[in-house]
């Protein structure tokens, strides 16, 4: 069936042919089997489009007032509605999830789970054995006053060589005794940003922090401490604890 004939049949059903064209197509419909078949197919397709609201307003009105108002049109429309209803009632084939696909794969390949489990055990064991323990590297840092200070009593910053996969465990001696119940927060200043560090021990005289080596590339650092008293008042300890990582 030529595409032009398909288009003409569609136009015929939607009432957009002139009288001569309509007569021509109807004469052909009387004698050409293929064209008649196309008419039958197109009617069904137009009903689908009509039901889906895909026809424009004029087409829709024409189709309703002509073909669909005939007994045949009504019967065909009800038929399409029924078949549509049945087709859309059918449960869609459910796409298996990744777990279902894996399960079905394992069912068909029973050796795979055992092999994967064995490989996982080996990998985990290797990691545990080969992974160096993240040891703490203890240092005691002395408080230094702000650099503006002219007193010239500040000690040189501690120079620390920190092995990889370790933690710096720094005990900070407080410049004065704070009352009992005081909590301390400590921040690490790496000269470009300041971030809190983990306080693991604290008392009135000393605060101990732990900083992973990964947070301490080579450079100069300053730990700043803030005390929060039991009554809620805060006191930032001037200066800080300077150290260099080599």
């Amino acid at each position: 069936m030529a595409l032009t004939d398909q288009a003409t049949i569609r136009q015929y059903l939607l009432g957009t042919l002139n009288d001569d064209e309509q007569q021509q197509i109807e004469e052909r419909l009387m004698i050409e089997d293929e064209l008649f078949e196309e008419l039958e197919i197109s009617k069904g397709e137009l009903i689908e489009e009509y039901r889906a609201g895909e026809l424009n307003r004029t087409e829709q009105t024409w189709f309703e007032e002509h073909y669909l108002s005939s007994n045949e049109g009504q019967e065909r429309q009800a038929f399409v509605a029924a078949i549509d209803y049945l087709a859309h009632q059918r449960p869609e084939p459910v796409k298996p999830s990744i777990f279902e696909r894996l399960r079905s794969f394992f069912k068909t390949q029973p050796w795979v789970p055992a092999t994967i489990a064995a490989a996982a055990v080996i990998v985990i064991a290797t990691l545990i054995i080969s992974r160096p323990p993240q040891t703490s590297y203890p240092v005691t840092l002395t408080h230094t006053l702000p650099t503006r200070s002219t007193e010239g009593t500040n000690p040189l910053p501690s120079r620390i060589t920190l092995p990889p996969n370790t933690k710096l465990r720094a005990s900070l001696e407080l410049p004065k005794q704070f009352p009992q119940g005081t909590r301390f927060t400590v921040k690490l200043d790496n000269q470009s940003e300041t971030k809190p560090v983990n306080v693991i021990e604290q008392n009135e005289r000393q605060v101990t922090v732990e900083i992973p080596a990964s947070d301490l590339p080579r450079g100069e650092y300053l730990l700043k401490v803030t005390a929060e008293m039991a009554d809620g008042t805060q006191e930032e300890i001037p200066g800080g604890y300077r150290f260099d990582i080599k």
Partner: peptide, 18 residues
Amino acid sequence: KIRLRLIRIFSCRSCPDT
């Protein structure tokens, strides 16, 4: 065959008693 085609054409021309 002729009768059926006439019925179909009458249907397209919105005739009720095709």
